[in-house]
């Protein structure tokens, strides 16, 4: 539903508050919407520093890169996982990195038209007895991560699963927390957090879009995710 089609936020069906991320094109569809005001929260240098810190924290927590495996959640978690892996390789040694599509494990699969799948790429050694670090761009409701945990359960039995996110914007709907956070970002649920990455969007930034009239006319965008 477009923002304009729902003038009164107080009457929204709770179903519509479900995460609706990872729709190809969503990210761009709402871009440049005129009623929203956009402010930048992290710029290129900030994103780089946050990732460097997370890479070190992952190594610190796990006492080195042994048995580590990074799994990015498409679409933007995958380039983030690759960048983290590159930083870990710079500091210590290379770790396997892959992608994990969770589309078919989502709890809102039935609520929307069938969606195309994103690539899943599990490193050759599998995930059994590894420490899997899930990587995503924004942590919001926690439903994506729940889906990812279910997907991991079908792939094997890791020794531990950890979660690294670039942005934690709060508003959890499930008992899930991140182990490594680039930036805690207190937001209103009316706001939209957008992560831009070079590999997908051609620039590195974290943006917050606020509806022009906070209490009504602008409404929530469809992609108010996680």
């Amino acid at each position: 539903m477009t923002p304009a089609s729902n003038p009164n936020p107080s009457t929204w069906d709770p179903l519509n508050r479900r995460p609706v991320d990872r729709q190809p094109g969503d990210h761009h569809r709402a871009r440049g919407q005129d009623p929203a005001t956009t402010r930048s929260v992290l710029d290129r240098a900030d994103v780089g520093r946050a990732l460097t810190r997370i890479a070190h924290e992952i190594l610190e927590r796990n006492k080195g890169p042994a048995d580590l495996l990074l799994l990015g959640i498409p679409s933007r978690g995958v380039p983030l996982a690759r960048r983290l892996a590159a930083r870990i390789a710079d500091v210590e040694s290379a770790v396997p990195v892959g992608a994990l599509d969770v589309t078919m494990y989502r709890d809102d699969l039935r609520l929307r038209p069938a969606r195309p799948l994103e690539p899943t790429d599990i490193p050759a050694g599998g995930i059994d007895d590894q420490v899997v670090v899930l990587v995503d761009d924004v942590l919001y409701s926690g439903r994506t991560i729940r889906a990812a945990l279910d997907a991991i359960g079908d792939l094997g039995r890791p020794r531990a699963v950890q979660l690294a996110v670039l942005v934690d914007r709060g508003h959890r709907e499930l008992p899930i927390r991140a182990d490594f956070v680039g930036k805690n970002l207190p937001t209103s649920q009316l706001e939209i957090v957008r992560v831009h990455l070079d590999e997908v969007d051609g620039d590195d930034a974290v943006l917050i879009e606020s509806p022009a009239v906070a209490s009504g006319a602008g409404g929530r965008s469809e992609r108010d995710t996680r």
Binding site: M104, L109, R110, L111, R112, P113, A114, R115, P116, L117
Partner: peptide, 11 residues
């Protein structure tokens, strides 16, 4: 089957 039956309507 997934594309026809997986969502609320076919893809």
């Amino acid at each position: 089957l997934y594309l026809l039956l997986g969502g609320s309507e076919p893809a």
